[in-house]
Amino acid sequence: MTRRGNWAVLGAGGISGDFARALPAATHSVLHAVGARDGSRARAFADEHGAPIAGTYDEILARDDVDAVYIGTVHTSHRELALAALAAGKAVLCEKPLGIDVAETEEILAAADAAGLPLVEAFKYRFGPFPDRARELVADGDLGEITEVETAIGFAADRGIRRLFDPALAGGALLDAGCYPVSLAVGVAAWAGRLDAPTVVSAEGVVGETGVDEDAAAVLDLGGIRARVSTSITRTLPRSATIRGTAGELEIPNVWGSRVESTATAILRRADGSREEIATATVSPMAAEADATIAALREGRTEAPEMPWRETLATARLLAEWRSLL
């Protein structure tokens, strides 16, 4: 029996705690170590979550008993930690966005390619039985030729959460939340074989007094597929998505799922008026993305099929174009 992959969590914040709590549900992954800028904070986190090893980032990355790292830190530290982890020979699962701009994203992808190591952008909604089914429906032509995607994500954040409202930390709605609807639109276009020269057709939004985008909407064109996306960190928006085609549409009421359970249901409405309820099993999406990273490592792959590099880069380019228009 192949041993489980030893994970190190880098960053001792809230989302890292969710990842640590998810790992017991994984099949091929186990929490082994915790790294933080402050070694004592890492030790406290490790004790809370049952990891035997703790230390600073450098101490953890220097260990030869760590197979993969999960980066759950603020956006502006993703590049530094991802490059250091890849240089240390570790597979990387990095929270979105992988880089805060296109240049960073390209640099990290190039480093993973040179190292021959897995690098996965952690869009957890991409992992599990339901997204596999959605990919099949689009790719197999059940909806006909895809014409439109409409999706959103938004929440009213506490203004005391500095990382969301500080431009020095790459705050704002687009990088924190808007990356979800953009990445979904990119994914649908890719599944349909239409991810060709994606661009922003139009954009609007509100930039707050701190200088970050707080509420925004855009229309994207992805190989002839029109995507209407919106996001906010000042108001609640639906967590739904609708994928429309010439033969029907797929309505997904909770497309993003949660950090502890993947989404499971959708309604397929066909052009002939028939209606089918789609239902799948649920999984821990964070455990699933961890296992997908370890599977890539074991099989000598640099990418996970759930979130390929081409789609990571297309998402980064669209986000940069959208931000430039606000």
Score class of each variant (00 low, 15 high):
residue 277 E to R: 13
residue 64 D to F: 04
residue 186 V to Y: 00
residue 188 V to P: 01
residue 223 G to P: 05
residue 77 S to N: 04
residue 159 R to D: 05
residue 177 A to V: 05
residue 166 D to V: 04
residue 87 A to H: 15
residue 98 L to S: 08
residue 159 R to M: 01
residue 224 G to E: 03
residue 114 A to C: 04
residue 272 D to T: 08
residue 229 V to P: 01
residue 37 R to S: 07
residue 297 L to M: 12
residue 323 R to M: 14
residue 145 E to V: 13
residue 162 R to I: 01
residue 9 V to P: 04
residue 133 R to Q: 07
residue 74 V to A: 06
residue 325 L to C: 05
residue 140 D to A: 12
residue 301 R to D: 13
residue 324 S to Q: 04
residue 20 A to T: 11
residue 250 L to T: 02
residue 236 T to S: 15
residue 143 L to D: 06
residue 4 R to A: 13
residue 90 K to C: 07
residue 2 T to G: 09
residue 122 A to D: 14
residue 326 L to N: 08
residue 64 D to H: 13
residue 88 A to T: 14
residue 204 E to D: 06
residue 199 T to R: 14
residue 154 G to A: 08
residue 120 V to L: 11
residue 80 E to G: 05
residue 101 D to M: 02
residue 171 G to Q: 08
residue 220 L to Q: 06
residue 141 G to H: 03
residue 297 L to I: 05
residue 206 V to T: 14
residue 87 A to C: 13
residue 283 V to T: 14
residue 228 R to G: 03
residue 265 T to C: 05
residue 11 G to R: 08
residue 171 G to T: 06
residue 128 G to N: 11
residue 51 A to S: 08
residue 97 P to E: 11
residue 278 I to F: 01
residue 10 L to F: 05
residue 61 L to A: 03
residue 132 D to I: 07
residue 135 R to W: 00
residue 180 Y to P: 02
residue 298 R to M: 07
residue 107 E to C: 12
residue 196 D to F: 01
residue 33 A to Y: 09
residue 18 D to G: 07
residue 40 S to F: 02
residue 270 R to N: 12
residue 45 F to R: 02
residue 311 E to S: 06
residue 301 R to L: 04
residue 36 A to P: 06
residue 35 G to M: 09
residue 153 I to W: 04
residue 208 G to N: 15
residue 149 V to P: 00
residue 212 V to T: 15
residue 52 P to E: 12
residue 214 E to N: 15
residue 320 A to Y: 03
residue 62 A to Q: 15
residue 252 I to E: 05
residue 16 S to D: 15
residue 236 T to P: 03
residue 258 S to R: 03
residue 230 S to M: 10
residue 64 D to I: 03
residue 74 V to C: 02
residue 149 V to W: 01
residue 110 A to W: 03
residue 307 M to R: 08
residue 73 T to D: 12
residue 214 E to Y: 14
residue 196 D to G: 02
residue 192 A to N: 06
residue 209 E to G: 15
residue 181 P to D: 07
residue 113 D to R: 12
residue 156 A to M: 07
residue 316 A to L: 09
residue 219 V to Q: 14
residue 207 V to W: 03
residue 284 S to I: 04
residue 212 V to C: 15
residue 142 D to P: 00
residue 102 V to E: 14
residue 159 R to P: 13
residue 155 F to Q: 13
residue 106 E to R: 11
residue 192 A to W: 01
residue 302 T to D: 06
residue 244 R to W: 02
residue 248 G to P: 12
residue 1 M to A: 12
residue 259 R to F: 11
residue 261 E to R: 14
residue 103 A to W: 06
residue 154 G to W: 03
residue 98 L to D: 08
residue 289 E to H: 03
residue 8 A to H: 08
residue 74 V to P: 13
residue 121 E to F: 01
residue 80 E to P: 00
residue 202 S to T: 12
residue 265 T to M: 06
residue 24 P to Y: 10
residue 189 A to Q: 02
residue 114 A to P: 13
residue 291 D to K: 02
residue 173 A to M: 08
residue 99 G to P: 04
residue 55 G to W: 11
residue 322 W to P: 01
residue 113 D to Y: 02
residue 64 D to R: 15
residue 288 A to W: 04
residue 50 G to I: 06
residue 141 G to R: 05
residue 134 A to V: 14
